[in-house]
């Protein structure tokens, strides 16, 4: 299989995944997109192994390694900072501990009860937050990939 065919198949797979994501939201079935995503990834991995005109020489591998390493270096700091912020929000929230006498709830407990909405999709917001972090990870990788590609002469013009 040629590399361009692989990219075409990857694009089609991506569109199918978007469709399945929409379907999963409609059906309220999170496992549908989770399983589909893993199957899609395995499918693309198998296809990638069959690409015949792939040229991964040592410089390309070096660029990839450098970009991955720097992405990890920067991402863990951002992830740590955001996690610390999230932990502060978590610890600042009252702990839902019932008062000693349930017949006489204290003022702050009444506030908690009033603010809790069982239908509110807390986990969904958490998922969106994770997706934003994932996109940040991909963006960081692309930036570092471009930087190291330039540094190690990927786009230099031929002098011949």
């Amino acid at each position: 299989m040629r590399q361009n065919t692989f990219y075409l198949m990857a694009g089609v797979t991506g569109l199918v995944e978007v469709g399945i994501f929409w379907l999963a939201v409609q059906l309220r079935n999170p496992f549908l997109i989770m399983v589909s995503f893993i199957i899609g990834f395995v499918f693309l991995y198998v296809l990638w192994r069959q690409v015949s005109d792939r040229k991964d020489d040592e410089r390309a591998v070096y660029i990839t390694e450098k970009a991955k390493s720097r992405t990890l270096d920067v991402f863990w700091v951002i992830f740590f900072a955001l996690s610390l912020g999230s932990a502060v929000i978590g610890f600042s929230t009252p702990l839902h501990i019932p008062p000693p006498n349930p017949a006489l709830p204290p003022d702050n407990f009444r506030v908690i009860v009033r603010n809790v909405h069982p239908d509110r999709p807390f986990m969904g917001y958490f998922g969106l937050f994770q997706l934003i972090l994932l996109f940040l990870l991909i963006l960081l990788y692309l930036v570092f990939r471009i930087y190291y590609s330039r540094k190690y002469g990927d786009w230099d013009s031929d002098e011949e």
């Binding site: 040592e58 070096y62 002469g153 990927d154 230099d156 002098e159």
Partner: peptide, 22 residues
């Protein structure tokens, strides 16, 4: 040598130091 033309270009320009093997 089984590498890309860009690698030869990068080595010639001194932008990339090849591995000992290469």
């Amino acid at each position: 040598l089984g590498v890309t033309r860009q690698t030869i270009l990068a080595i010639e320009k001194g932008k990339y130091d090849p591995s000992i093997d290469l």
